[in-house]
Amino acid sequence: MNYIFYFLIVISIIAGALNGKLSEVVNAIMQGAELSVKVAFSLIGIMAFWLGMMKIAEKSGLVEIIAKIIKPITKRLFNEIPENSPAIGDIAMNFSANALGLSNAATPMGLKAMEELQKHNKNKSSASNAMCMLLAMNTAGFQLIPATVIAVLIGIGAKNPTEIIAPTLLVTTIAFVSAIIIAKIFEKYWSPQTCDTTTSEVQEAENA
């Protein structure tokens, strides 16, 4: 992350200078900062709503039931997480909301899952294997019906806007399955997480 952050900013400044767009790049800092706060604040209400709903779902045992249904899959994907952890139910809800294209609901559910996964995490500042798997599932963006895209196509008068559904579903499935496989491969070969705080502090110093 350190390198990507550095790389993005340095490249932008160099390319901006080469293209004579340096003032746009500088303006983008302010606009980006403002946008970040706008995005975060626009999340507050919907986040509160779904976190409230999720609490009811959890207390009523609904999350547990969903977790049980999906257990054969999650057991393999999240083998470090105890089977009875509420994280499994949250992950299942997050995946279902994503698949249905309900991103407003999916994000709070995913963040709830992250909170539960953090309880099982050995090193609180570094991503656990389970977290990387959840992120792989989310960044791949699996979705059954691309509603927004279809709306745009209808807007410009496409005769058959639904013809993109099947190809999109095929592509999104390929990307989703690849993400899970890649995460599993990295889980095996990437240097394991350090649980000893002293070594992680040394690493942090090195990274900084």
Binding site: M1, E115, A127, M131, L135, N138, A140, F176, F186, W190
Partner: peptide, 25 residues
């Protein structure tokens, strides 16, 4: 958003996984 919500700054292989999957997509 996901890592920020629990205060994680070391992403390990999460970003590489996401970008590789994007490329495959």
């Amino acid at each position: 958003v996901y890592f920020g919500s629990v205060g994680i700054s070391k992403l390990r292989y999460a970003m590489l996984t996401g970008l590789l999957a994007d490329f495959i997509g």
